Amino acid sequence: MADSAQVAELLEHEEKKSLESREFGFWVYLMTDAIIFALLFASYVVLSKNSAAGPTSNDLFDLGHTAGETVLLLVSSLTFGLATIAMAAGQSGRVVQWLFVTLLLGLGFLAMEMVEFYGMIAKGAGPGTSGFLSAFFTLVGTHGLHVAFGSLGICVMIGQVLIKGLTLPVRSRLLRLGLFWHFLDIVWIGIFSVVYLPGVM
């Protein structure tokens, strides 16, 4: 009995070490992602005035629509935080509920972004129209792609919580996904502040 208890304790210790190394690796990934977004922001700032006699940001941006997107994404960050609190309390049912709400909010954000892109392209303001629009679609589209992958990750986590429960690996994955989701919120605040607000002023 003592031997089996020691083996179980050793396995749990090794599992914790493995999860800690994965969490460190995830932080490294977020840092590299932040560098990519920093380069996209820099490119946008340089090209933002290069409209090539085409439509400008003032002609295209609808701050009310963008504010709606912002509300959806910020509230989704709150609901993900509530899922994390429920996880800490061991309430797997609540975790699934809050993750599902977060997923709906994320999908709502993506739907609004696609409506915005479609409307701009329908006006002849596609990514090939000017340097400004090329940089805009690249920056905002890259963020949207991240939200799509994050939404897919939420679907996977809902399945894992339902099937496996709140095991140590599931908790670790959920925390990492939460870091990713909150990171996307920070990037979006940057987009709102650097792209949309100056674009309509």
Rank of each mutant, 00 (worst) to 15 (best):
P127W: 13
A42G: 04
L166C: 08
I35Y: 15
T142K: 00
S77Q: 09
I191N: 02
T167K: 05
P127F: 12
A38F: 02
L19R: 03
D62T: 01
T32P: 06
L19K: 07
L73Q: 03
L107R: 05
K123Y: 03
L145T: 00
P55F: 03
L11K: 01
S48C: 11
G144M: 11
E14T: 00
G178W: 11
H13G: 01
L145S: 01
L177Y: 11
G159M: 14
S77Y: 09
N58K: 15
W98E: 14
N50V: 06
E113L: 06
D185W: 15
L103V: 05
A135V: 11
V170K: 09
G119A: 06
G68E: 03
L82M: 13
D3F: 09
L145A: 01
L103G: 05
V7Q: 05
A148K: 13
L133E: 10
I191F: 04
E20D: 15
F149P: 02
V187D: 02
W27D: 14
K16A: 07
W181V: 09
T142N: 08
G126E: 06
R22S: 11
D185Y: 15
S193G: 11
S57V: 00
L47R: 10
F132T: 15
P55E: 06
P127T: 04
F136D: 07
L168R: 10
G128M: 04
D62L: 03
M87P: 14
K164P: 05
L107Y: 03
L110Q: 08
K49F: 08
L162C: 13
I186N: 15
Y196N: 04
T56R: 05
S77M: 13
L99S: 12
M120Y: 14
G131Q: 04
A86Y: 08
L74C: 08
G81E: 10
L99Y: 12
F117M: 08
E23Y: 05
A135K: 07
L174W: 14
L73N: 04
T84K: 12
R176H: 10
L197T: 11
V28K: 11
V28E: 11
H146I: 01
A88G: 07
I158P: 04
I36E: 12
A88I: 06
E14S: 09
R94K: 12
F37T: 02
A83I: 07
M120K: 13
G150T: 07
Y118T: 12
G159I: 06
L10E: 03
I36F: 06
Y118Q: 13
K164T: 08
T84V: 13
D59M: 05
K16S: 08
A53Q: 10
L197W: 01
V28H: 07
G108P: 07
V45L: 11
W188Y: 02
L82G: 02
R176E: 12
G178A: 14
A125Y: 03
G124H: 06
H182N: 01
F26Q: 13
